[in-house]
């Protein structure tokens, strides 16, 4: 499964595309896409240049957590620095 991610233009926060086509900072709320459908969804997301930047696809597992080769990177990216657990989404600091 895939999810669409990018960075919010105004503040750079890591966001994911939800079912309702809105963006969320919580990966748990990301809409899962079948691998075949995901490219088209990404294409559409990439046109939303006024909202986000650098959109791409990530692999997610059934429970919605990052998976595959980039799992560690995407886990840190969604949560925040492992050396500053007081910062980032993991600390509830970003909405």
């Amino acid at each position: 499964m895939k999810a669409v991610t990018g960075n919010r233009l105004c503040d750079g926060a890591v966001v994911y595309l939800k079912d309702d086509d809105q963006w969320t900072v919580h990966i748990a709320e990301a809409a899962p896409f079948q691998n075949d459908d995901s490219e088209a969804v990404l294409k559409a997301a990439q046109t939303r240049v006024g909202e986000i930047t650098e959109a791409y696809l990530i692999d997610i597992a059934d429970d919605g957590a990052p998976s595959g080769r980039q799992a560690l990177r995407e886990t840190i990216r969604t949560a925040g620095p492992t050396v500053r657990v007081d910062l980032g989404v993991q600390a509830g600091g970003i909405r």
Partner: peptide, 28 residues
């Protein structure tokens, strides 16, 4: 110009980089 949509990210990126502004893992 970027926020208004006049500049695309491709056009804006080299300009922000010339001012030391990167996009990193979590944020700018």
């Amino acid at each position: 110009r970027r926020l208004s949509g006049e500049l695309t990210e491709d056009e804006f990126k080299p300009l922000r980089l010339m001012n030391g502004l990167y996009l990193q893992l979590h944020a700018y």
